[in-house]
């Protein structure tokens, strides 16, 4: 298994990380050595094994439907890069 520069560009795009062609080249080599390591698990026969998603076999606890939060937008927006009239500002979204 080995990743092409196009694969690297594709996943960088999925992850929204700007990657130049030169960076993609360098990353490709490193990712390939990691995927060589990962590939060792492909040989294991896991037929009939249930995937393990959590460390404990427990079920979700449920919260009562009650409003417990108060308005803290001033504190939250004190650390925001750009706000106006209580709104977070981002470059124009085009639909």
């Amino acid at each position: 298994m080995s990743l092409s520069p196009d694969d690297v560009k594709r996943i960088a795009r999925l992850a929204r990380i700007e990657t130049s062609d030169a960076e993609a080249q360098a990353t490709q080599a490193q990712l390939n050595s990691i995927f060589d390591l990962i590939a060792t698990m492909q040989a294991v026969d896991t037929a009939g094994i249930a995937p393990m998603a959590h460390a404990q076999e427990v079920y979700q606890r449920l919260r009562d439907d009650a409003v417990t939060e108060t308005d803290r937008h001033a504190a939250f927006q004190a650390v925001a890069p750009a706000v106006e009239n209580g709104l977070y500002l981002v470059p124009k979204v085009i639909e």
Binding site: A15, L31, I38, M41, V44
Partner: peptide, 22 residues
């Protein structure tokens, strides 16, 4: 990027699911 790749379309079963089973 590794994470995005192993979850991406067509690779999920071979990587993510296999890893959860092991």
């Amino acid at each position: 990027m590794i994470g995005a790749y192993v979850l991406s379309h067509g690779y999920y079963d071979a990587y993510y699911l296999q890893a959860q089973k092991i």
